[in-house]
Write a protein that binds this DNA or RNA. Sequence first.
DNA 1: TAGAGCCTGGACAACGTTGTCAGATCCGAG
DNA 2: CTCGGATCTGACAACGTTGTCCAGGCTCTA
Lengths: 354, 354
Amino acid sequence: MPETAAPRGERRADRNSATRYGNRPTMKDVAARAGVGLKTVSRVVNGEPGVTADTERRVQEAIEALGFRRNDSARVLRKGRTASIGLVLEDLADPFYGPLSRAVEEVARAHGALLINGSSAEDPDREQELVLALCARRVDGLVVIPAGDDHRYLEPELRAGVATVFVDRPAGQIDADVVLSDNFGGARDGVAHLIAHGHRRIGFIGDMPRIHTAAERLRGYHTAMTDAGIPVTNSWTSLGVTDPQRVRRAAEEMLSGPEPVTAIFAGNNRVTVTVVRVLAERSRPVALVGFDDFELADLLQPGVTVVAQDAAQLGRTAAERLFSQLDGTLVTPERTELPTRLITRGSGELAPAK
Amino acid sequence: MPETAAPRGERRADRNSATRYGNRPTMKDVAARAGVGLKTVSRVVNGEPGVTADTERRVQEAIEALGFRRNDSARVLRKGRTASIGLVLEDLADPFYGPLSRAVEEVARAHGALLINGSSAEDPDREQELVLALCARRVDGLVVIPAGDDHRYLEPELRAGVATVFVDRPAGQIDADVVLSDNFGGARDGVAHLIAHGHRRIGFIGDMPRIHTAAERLRGYHTAMTDAGIPVTNSWTSLGVTDPQRVRRAAEEMLSGPEPVTAIFAGNNRVTVTVVRVLAERSRPVALVGFDDFELADLLQPGVTVVAQDAAQLGRTAAERLFSQLDGTLVTPERTELPTRLITRGSGELAPAK
DNA sequence: TAGAGCCTGGACAACGTTGTCAGATCCGAG
DNA sequence: CTCGGATCTGACAACGTTGTCCAGGCTCTA
């Protein structure tokens, strides 16, 4: 039907202009060139049956010649599903989130979906901004590592059917699926490990307790101490922003008071590393167990004993639950808790110094 | 205009059904509820002028009540720009790419764009698949860390106006913008550093030379050796897949031959770490310089001397060039090369063992 | 008070695709 | 030779938004 193509042809007077910047060929163009109907092109592009080999060949040639690529935006609009999921995390540059993100991506890929991700930089407003932007893009689902503690802004989205899984920390004020590490148990076991090696004065340096993981780990510390009948002195714990300067000061204080600690439990990755630096500068050996594993921990002198959580497994589990929601397999929000693993490498097995 | 809303109202017999799973309210719904025209809602949502305060309030209330969120897919279709860019890299879990990705994200954010990313897993087919999927989504631009060496498949996309910047390695067979580290200069300087400390038998363990960065670093090694008048023996270089087993074997071989090397230049991150492990098992000190910095390199005994490249800067530069292309500021593809930095920490300053 | 000009709001088409449905074509069997 | 049915093809509407354009009401001035 050349008639169908005519108005289009008029608008784009010169055939070459179809390949000009920002003016991509559409199925209509392909159809005109191949001398077939619009829908036939759609059929070929989507591999639908009911097209003769000859017609298909003509269409393919036209696609090739014009450099046509289907516009998925239009497709999405029509079909309602975007085949993409969103991941909001704290900071992609953090070595903990890289593997997690990659794991989510792999699961998404297995389901034919792309991953859009964003870093909240631990800022609740930015988290909300990102999440809502992703919803506006109509991602099919969301994996969120929350920065804020109030997620009621998600309610309309949840009602509208956006599948959502929270990871690493639970959602605030709403009932949602969540995948966590056993922060409490891990910390408790780590501290108990130090106690088992003879320590009684054990320091704890962690994040602000308003962060769920930090609070849970602190609780684990207290539980282990209480279980062993050890009263905890206030000066042994330091909770707050975990920038190197503060952690350094905190470590130095608890190591030099009248009742210096003989062991330190570090509440996260960054803390552990800073503590390692502080300890490296001192002659008296101090035991150390850190939450979160990190690369090369085994190569340090001594190797650093850690409570490891499996970031990739966390991401994988979350993504799988997400797609279960999308399949309709899963309906009720659940709380999944993954175990942690104590990896002994030396630093946690040092005996208390006199 | 209740008349306008009527047909819609009929289709969704029950008002509640508008908030049912997968059936989101549209601007039409909002307009009906607020008793205004469709375009007025659009104006309010986009903050366009020409709406009285009272009308705006009514619309805002309807939006609130219905939990409306603009469908960006439709918007994209209409406007032609998606305000999103794609990033294709090798592996998000690799600590080198985390900061790079984050830097790209920050620049994108500053330009109001979201980042979609994908891991090619160093597989050219998967790279192409990802890139084309992103093009189908009509991302405004692409940042690609290429896995393959033939990117002619991108030609139709480039003609269609998809801004593209290659990072870390140049594009193959097409003329495109590219941002690189000075792999050649960095490796040359690193090896020269070893030579300056008295080494003559220096090993090189690197990736397959079909990877551009690997080839350049190898060239740097050869140049440094030649400049110093040192003939290179074949058994001193190992090129291939950089899995731990192979690297370990390679290192052990060059350390135990009749003419054992007294220093090793490691072609990348992973190689460096493996070599550190091998050297830690041996008593005789061997000097080591690695390409790429890594966390805790300073805490090892001895600290590891490295040729550092700034991954974040690489990402930032690439993203900025991308947006310059989109602004129209930039038209001619260019090759940008960022300097590397030698960081001395001890392992590269060891004198050759007898 | 009439006319000009501004401001607000809405009807309509278009973006590029897919689902529906009906028309056209071809084959073989009666 | 004709008819039924299977197969292939295309016209059309719809997805939810934004750009264009025009209508109607208002204010201001002469």
